Simulated assay, not measured.
Amino acid sequence: MSLHDKTFLVTGAGSGIGRAVARQLFGAGARVVLVGRRAAALCETAEAAQDGQALVHPADIARPAAAARAVQAALECFGGMDGLVNNAGLARFGPLADADPSDLNAMLDVNLLGPVHLIRAALPPLRAGGGSVVNVSSVGGVLAMPDRAVYGASKAALNSLTRSLARELAPLVRVNAVLPGPVDTPMYDDLGLAPEQVARLRDDMVDSTPLGRFGTPEDIASWVCRLLDPEAAGWVTGALIPVDGGRTS
């Protein structure tokens, strides 16, 4: 991949898909700004980088001012920015009638408004270098899923944002999204569900996936990196690519 010596900002880089994306970028010789709430987890991700390839930047992207600070940190450390991966996400499952309003707001802040603020802050360097944005969405944005209505709505909004900005920002900036199916990440420990509910949910997800297994973070990361690569995907923008084991087929 033609990612060597390029600079990318990855949110949610402390675990799961974000960590896998960062590691693949390191392997391609890229520089990566690692953004997430937990500094210790980001430092663990950075251990896969060679000297000078990683910048650890703890931040909560749900806070509007965090976006401009993260982009500024990238510019000050590496002098530019070639791509942005909006991977950080938040899921809270359960009936709408039982939902905590603060959880509903938090999902919109992290899953939609965080990417909006980051893309807006990153526009000058991305336009200067012909950069790329990859949003990590979800099949939840295209499937009707009871007890996950607001989560799905936030991802559907991210999908719409992706397609609209692909036209708005062309031809200088490409904007695409990957839509993972069920991926085995620490997210399942933080859904707001009891352990037995999580176990049933995981079983149901595998049963409804034609390939019969959970995806891995690496399954998703390889597609994210491909979309970032101007040689592999230089004529791709506005795409919503399901990487889901056939779940949306």
Rank of each mutant, 00 (worst) to 15 (best):
P115N: 06
A62G: 15
G234Y: 10
R226L: 08
A62S: 14
A68H: 14
I241T: 09
S164I: 08
A62V: 03
A62E: 10
L90I: 03
D109F: 02
G130E: 02
F93S: 03
A91V: 05
N87V: 05
A199P: 05
A39I: 09
S160R: 14
P182G: 15
G14C: 04
V183G: 11
N105E: 15
G79Q: 14
T11N: 06
L240E: 13
V178E: 08
D189P: 08
Y188K: 07
R127G: 12
G234Q: 01
A46S: 05
E218R: 09
P230G: 13
D190F: 12
V33I: 04
D207K: 15
R226G: 09
T185E: 05
V178C: 13
P186Q: 03
C43V: 09
A88S: 12
G246N: 02
V236D: 03
L193Q: 14
N86M: 13
N86D: 04
V133R: 02
P124A: 04
V10E: 03
V136P: 08
R174G: 12
G245R: 05
V175K: 14
D5C: 08
R226M: 15
P171K: 15
V178M: 13
A144R: 08
S2R: 15
P124H: 00
Q24V: 05
A40C: 01
A65S: 15
V35H: 10
T11Y: 01
G212E: 03
C43P: 09
E231F: 12
D51M: 11
P58R: 12
L34C: 05
L96N: 11
N135V: 10
G27L: 12
P180F: 12
G212H: 07
R200I: 01
A41V: 00
C43N: 14
A28S: 14
F93A: 09
H57Y: 13
G131A: 04
A28G: 13
A166L: 10
A46L: 10
S138V: 02
C77D: 12
C225G: 01
A144Q: 08
V71H: 11
A170G: 09
P124E: 01
L191T: 03
P64M: 11
D103C: 11
E168R: 13
A28L: 12
L118A: 04
P124G: 02
A199E: 13
R92G: 06
M187F: 11
L228W: 06
F8K: 07
F26Y: 03
L75A: 13
I119Q: 05
G212R: 13
G246T: 08
A20E: 00
A233T: 07
P125V: 04
A66D: 03
W235R: 13
A54V: 04
G80K: 14
T7S: 14
G246R: 02
A88D: 05
D219A: 05
L118K: 02
G80C: 13
S164K: 13
N105H: 14
C225F: 10
A74S: 15
L191I: 07
V178Q: 10
V133F: 15
V21I: 04
G36C: 07
P124K: 11
Y188E: 10
D190I: 02
K155F: 02
C225I: 01
G114K: 04
L90V: 00
A48P: 02
L193V: 04
G129P: 04
R92L: 10
G238S: 12
P125N: 08
